[in-house]
Computed example of a mutant assay.
Amino acid sequence: MATSDTAVSLSNVRKTYRIGEPVHALDGVSLEVPQGSYTAIMGPSGSGKSTLMNLVGCLDTPTEGTVVVGGREVGALGDRERTRLRGTEVGFVFQTFNLMPRLNAVENVALPQLFQNVGRSERRERARALLERVGLADRADHQPNELSGGQRQRVALARALVNDPAIVLADEPSGNLDTDTEADILDLFDEFHGGGTTMLVVTHERHVAERADRIVHLLDGKIERIEDLEGSSESRAGSAAGRGTGREGRRNGGGDAE
């Protein structure tokens, strides 16, 4: 059962695709993602990682069971309500960045706020503040083709955070980055997690997953095991906790993102 301290809750979730014989992409998965936690999802191809991501991201609904995001059951919502929930409660970071090529960095970051009826000046102010947070204040007016891969991923991270989501969902976020740039992006994940942002990272890479507090291992649509990484991010969280950079900190007037 989801509580106010739970960002995402899955209860006995099954997702079945019927292409000839039924395929159980997820088969009885139950999982709670606490507010402010950092969870990695690992598993081989076909284990159900993408299906889990789509359900948590409100892009799909379960065949059976319940998925609760931000206190609302996803399967009980209509398409419009699910779109609204996705826009307010989930921030996405993709391997391929998915930036709009004709928009500059500020416009890309500000774009999700357009669908939340935020005024133009407020949208741009918030977008510029987040670009400064990810070290791109001097690239705010550059288009994606004028940015490196690492810079584009920083823009994507800022965009994911712009609506102050309950959870940031990252799908192979460092797959297109070199080693040094990957480390910079993962350090930013640590920083925002330390400030209270809930992180859920889908990855094939063990060293990426080890940044999290725990690793959920999927196999054949089931949770094979949950691996607790004791102390993996506690020191990072402690060092950033006082900065008020997360969801609750911003709502209480803390941090420098306003």
Score class of each variant (00 low, 15 high):
Phe189Gln: 09
Gly253Ala: 10
Glu125Leu: 07
Ala156Lys: 12
Leu85Trp: 07
Asp5Lys: 01
Thr3Pro: 09
Val67Pro: 05
Leu219Ser: 02
Ala76Met: 06
Ala257Tyr: 13
Arg214His: 04
Phe97Glu: 06
Arg206Phe: 15
Asp184Ile: 00
Ser232Gly: 11
Leu77Lys: 10
Ile215Ser: 05
Val74Phe: 00
Val109Ile: 10
Leu186Val: 08
Phe92Gln: 03
Arg86Asp: 05
Asn145Met: 13
Glu234Leu: 15
Leu77Val: 10
Gly231Cys: 03
Leu131Asn: 03
Gln35Ala: 11
Gly149Phe: 00
Leu77Asp: 10
Asp138Val: 09
His207Leu: 06
Gly87Trp: 07
Glu107Tyr: 08
Leu111Arg: 13
Val69Ile: 01
Val68Trp: 02
Val67Lys: 02
Asp213Tyr: 11
Val23Gly: 04
Arg159Trp: 07
Gly20Cys: 09
Met42His: 05
Pro22Arg: 11
Glu227Tyr: 00
Gln116Ala: 15
Arg128Gln: 02
Gly87Arg: 11
Glu107Ser: 07
Thr198His: 12
Leu157Phe: 07
Gly196Phe: 02
Val90Glu: 08
Met100Cys: 13
Thr203Asp: 03
Val67Tyr: 03
Gly87Lys: 11
Gly231Val: 02
Ala166Ser: 15
Asp171Glu: 05
Leu229Asn: 08
Asn12Gln: 08
Val56Glu: 06
Leu188Lys: 06
Arg214Ser: 04
Gly71Ile: 15
Leu131Thr: 09
Gly87Glu: 05
Glu230His: 05
Val216Lys: 09
Gly175Cys: 00
His217Thr: 14
Val118Leu: 03
Glu227Leu: 00
Ser30Leu: 00
Leu177Ser: 12
Asp27Arg: 12
Thr6Glu: 03
Leu161Trp: 08
Phe192Ala: 00
Arg247Cys: 00
Phe94Lys: 12
Ala170Thr: 00
Glu89Leu: 05
Gly36His: 07
Ala140Asn: 04
Thr61Val: 15
Gly46Gln: 14
Asn117Ser: 09
Ser47Tyr: 09
Phe189Asp: 11
Asp178Lys: 02
Ser4His: 12
Phe115Lys: 04
Phe94Gln: 13
Thr197Asn: 02
Asp141Ile: 04
Gly149Gln: 00
Glu122Leu: 07
Val162Pro: 14
Lys49Ala: 02
Asp180Ile: 01
Arg133Asp: 10
Leu31Asp: 05
Arg251Gln: 13
Glu230Lys: 01
Glu21Ser: 12
Leu26Lys: 11
Ser233Leu: 06
Glu205Met: 12
Arg236Glu: 00
Leu229His: 06
Ile185Gln: 14
Gly48Val: 10
Val74Asn: 04
Arg82Asn: 13
Gly28Ser: 06
Arg72Glu: 10
Leu85Gly: 11
Arg14Phe: 00
Ala127Met: 03
Gly242Pro: 13
Glu230Met: 03
Ala166Thr: 15
Leu200Phe: 14
Asp138Glu: 14
Met42Phe: 08
Glu248Arg: 10
Pro101Ile: 04
Thr3Gly: 14
Asp228Cys: 09
Val118Met: 01
His193Glu: 06
Gly78Asn: 13
Leu177Trp: 09
Leu218Phe: 07
Leu99Ile: 01
Thr39His: 05
Thr66Gln: 14
Arg84Thr: 10
Val93Ala: 09
Thr96Ser: 07
Ile41Cys: 02
Arg120Gly: 03
